[in-house]
């Protein structure tokens, strides 16, 4: 065996190992989601017969009221929280990258401080405040606290992105006769857009992942997001276990994440390493 094939073989083994590491638990819950109730207790990896019944339960069966509303809440709340965070962060990061003003460090420092904040510490006062002003168990009641998760990472990631934009291009374009707005749109927007988009993905992941706010600040299908709803699934009676339904729902909410990762892995990696902050 020559060294080249040997190294190729080695890399294949390593790749398989990494793939196994990353995907095995997902594969396990995927397999579980196709098990019949009888198979759930049989201690095997694969179902003995594959069934869609767990998916039927959450989409058209008993659990649909719980799951579909949670899915809608999760998508809506996470998207809105992401959108607001990205808009605010874009303005903020633009100022940080482009302008010189006192307090810049304070803003970045605040973003950092907020990102290390234990969510559980703010949940009780928020719960108390929300119930007095009527935001408890509503969409805004989750969107607002979600900003504490999505804003810091957005500011950091975008500041890093914006610093790398050659803003001189804007001037160059203006010299070539474009108006300021044209110059901004033609020269800067195409450069900034990928960064904004990447930031949006990262912020969405974080909002999508939230659990503590989700279980503490909601109590019905009106606003309960998916991670919180997963803990609410039930079997056929209140004493029977919902393993199948949970697994199916878990797979459903993992699909968007996997799709985003598949499509944008390069961007996500660069965004993560530039911002160097995780919510």
């Amino acid at each position: 065996m020559n060294p080249k094939t040997k190294s190729r073989l080695g890399w294949t083994v390593v790749t398989v190992l990494v793939l196994g590491y990353s995907l095995f638990p997902v594969a396990a819950i995927f397999a579980t989601s196709f098990k019949t109730p009888g198979d759930l207790g049989n201690q095997t990896f694969l179902p003995t017969s594959w069934t869609w019944q767990n998916y039927e339960m959450i989409f058209v069966g008993d659990a649909q009221g719980l799951f579909l509303s949670a899915l809608r809440n999760s998508i809506g709340i996470a998207l809105i929280a992401t959108f607001i965070a990205v808009v605010l962060a874009t303005l903020c990061a633009y100022a940080i990258a482009r302008l010189d003003f006192p307090g810049k460090r304070i803003i970045l420092g605040a973003a950092l401080a907020v990102s290390i904040f234990p969510v559980i510490s703010v949940v009780t006062p928020l719960f108390n405040l929300w119930r007095t002003i009527g935001l408890y168990d509503t969409w805004p009641g989750l969107i607002i606290p979600y900003l504490s998760l999505t804003l810091p990472i957005s500011i950091w990631t975008l500041s890093a992105f914006f610093r790398q934009i050659p803003w001189d291009l804007e001037q160059a374009a203006q010299v070539d006769g474009a108006t300021q707005w044209q110059a901004f749109r033609k020269a800067i927007v195409p450069l900034a857009a990928p960064g904004v988009f990447t930031t949006a993905i990262l912020a969405f992941f974080i909002a999508w992942n939230d659990f503590v706010y989700g279980i503490s600040l909601t109590s019905t299908e009106a606003a309960r997001p998916v991670p919180a709803a997963l803990a609410f699934f039930t079997g056929a009676s209140q004493f029977e276990e919902p393993t199948g339904a949970i697994s199916a729902a878990a797979i459903v909410v993992t699909i968007p994440v996997v799709v985003l990762v598949l499509l944008f892995q390069r961007r996500i990696v660069s965004g993560l390493t530039q911002g160097a902050v995780k919510g």
């Binding site: 990494v18 793939l19 590491y21 990353s22 995907l23 638990p25 997902v26 819950i29 992941f205 999508w208 992942n209 659990f211 998916v226 991670p227 997963l230 803990a231 878990a250 909410v253 993992t254 994440v257 996997v258 985003l260 990762v261 598949l262 892995q265 390069r266 996500i268 990696v269 993560l272």
Partner: peptide, 14 residues
């Protein structure tokens, strides 16, 4: 990279 991002992006509860 794709593989390694899956655990990162998956919901913690899941």
């Amino acid at each position: 990279r794709t593989a390694i991002l899956v655990p990162y992006a998956i919901i913690t509860v899941v």
